[in-house]
Simulated assay, not measured.
Amino acid sequence: MTRTLAVCTDDFGLTLGISQAIGELAQAGRITAVSCMPQAPAWRASLPLLAGLPALVQRGLHFNLTEGAPLSAELRRIWPQFLALPRLILAAHLGQLPRAALAAEWAAQWQAFADASGAAPQFVDGHQHVHHLPGVRDEVLEAISTLPSVPAVRNTGRLTGPGFGLKRWLIEGTGGWALQRALRQRGIRHNPSLTGAYDFIDPDYGGQMRGWLAALPAAGGLLFCHPGYAEQVPTVVDPIAPARVRERAYLASDAFLHDLQAADVVLGSVW
C-alpha cells in the first residue's frame, strides 16, 4: 500500500549553509516543506533562496524560544537571551512562563515571516518542539484560531519508527500528547504522525531513514530533518552541524529515491 511522507526541513535562516542546502533539496524535489526562523542570524541573507523555492514547497514558521535573542521588546525585557531547552521545559511545566510576553514574541516572529515572505505561514511548528509546551501551546493555538485561514500545526503527539526511544517519549510527554488532543478538539489540520527523531550521532542516516519508512503508518506522516552545509566560518554554535552534512548528502542522493521506492512511499502533504 502506497503511503505518503511529508519531508520538512527545519531551521531555514539559522545559517546561510543551512538555507542553501534546503534550497537545493527543494529544487531537486526531495522535500515538501520548509520551516523558517525569521529571527535567526542568516534570515535576511536567506530570503532570495526562500523566494526561489518551488510553489509546491510549503513555507512555515519555526517558532523559536531557545536559540538566540527574542524579537519582541516585551520578551527581551524579561529574557535578553532565550532560555536553554531544559530550563524552558521546566518553567513551562511549573507554570512560570511570561505568557503576555510570549504572545508578543509569537506575534513578532509571525509578522517578521509575513513581512519578509509576503504571505502568512502555511503551517507552524517549534524549534526543538517548543510549540507544544504548556503555556506556549495555549498562546499559539489561541493566536492561530482567530485567523481567517488557520494554518496547519505540526503534531508531536505520535512519534513513529526506530531510533532514540527516550527522545521520542520526551517529545510526546513534554507536550506532544496534549497538543494532539487540542488539535483534534479544535479541528486544526495536523500530520497524523511524526518521524525523524534520533540522536544526531549515528553516521548511517540512510539506515535510520529505512527504519522510519518501514514504520510509516498507512495514514502517512511527517519527517522532520535538519540538512545543511558546513560553515567555513561558523556564525552560530551548532552542536548538530556534522549531522546536518550527513542528512543533506543522503537526501540529495539516489539512495533516498531508491529507499522511497522500495518502501512504496511517495512525497507529499499530510496535513
Rank of each mutant, 00 (worst) to 15 (best):
T2I: 14
T4R: 05
A6P: 06
C8A: 10
T9K: 02
T9Q: 04
T9D: 07
T9W: 01
D10K: 00
D10Q: 06
L14S: 05
T15Y: 06
L16A: 13
G17R: 05
I18W: 07
S19Q: 06
Q20K: 15
I22T: 12
E24G: 03
A26K: 02
Q27C: 07
A28L: 10
P38M: 14
P41I: 10
A45D: 14
S46Y: 04
P48G: 10
P54A: 08
V57F: 04
Q58Y: 02
G60K: 10
L61P: 00
T66W: 11
E67K: 08
S72R: 02
A73G: 14
L75S: 09
R76C: 08
R77M: 09
R77P: 02
R77W: 08
P80W: 12
Q81H: 14
F82D: 05
L85D: 03
L85T: 07
R87W: 15
I89Y: 11
A91H: 11
A92Y: 12
L94S: 07
G95E: 14
Q96M: 13
Q96L: 14
L97P: 00
R99C: 10
A100F: 12
L102A: 07
L102G: 06
W106G: 02
W106S: 01
Q111D: 09
Q111G: 01
A112F: 06
D115T: 14
D115E: 11
P121L: 12
Q122N: 11
V124D: 06
G126K: 00
D138Y: 09
V140T: 04
A143S: 13
A143M: 14
I144F: 09
P148F: 15
P151V: 02
A152F: 08
R158W: 14
R158F: 14
L159N: 09
T160D: 05
T160E: 11
G161K: 11
G161I: 14
G163M: 05
F164M: 08
G165T: 12
L166P: 05
R168H: 12
W169T: 06
I171C: 06
W177E: 13
R181W: 09
A182R: 08
L183V: 09
Q185C: 01
Q185L: 07
G187I: 10
I188Q: 01
I188A: 01
R189G: 15
R189C: 15
T195Y: 04
D199A: 05
I201C: 15
P203G: 08
G206P: 04
G207T: 08
W212C: 05
W212D: 06
A214I: 03
A214L: 04
A215C: 03
P217N: 05
L223T: 03
F224K: 02
C225V: 15
C225W: 06
H226F: 00
V236T: 13
V236N: 04
D238E: 15
I240F: 15
I240L: 15
I240M: 15
A243T: 05
E247G: 03
R248W: 10
R248E: 06
R248C: 05
Y250P: 00
D254F: 10
L257S: 07
L257P: 00
L257H: 00
H258A: 12
L260Q: 09
Q261A: 12
Q261S: 11
A262K: 11
D264I: 03
L267M: 04
G268R: 12
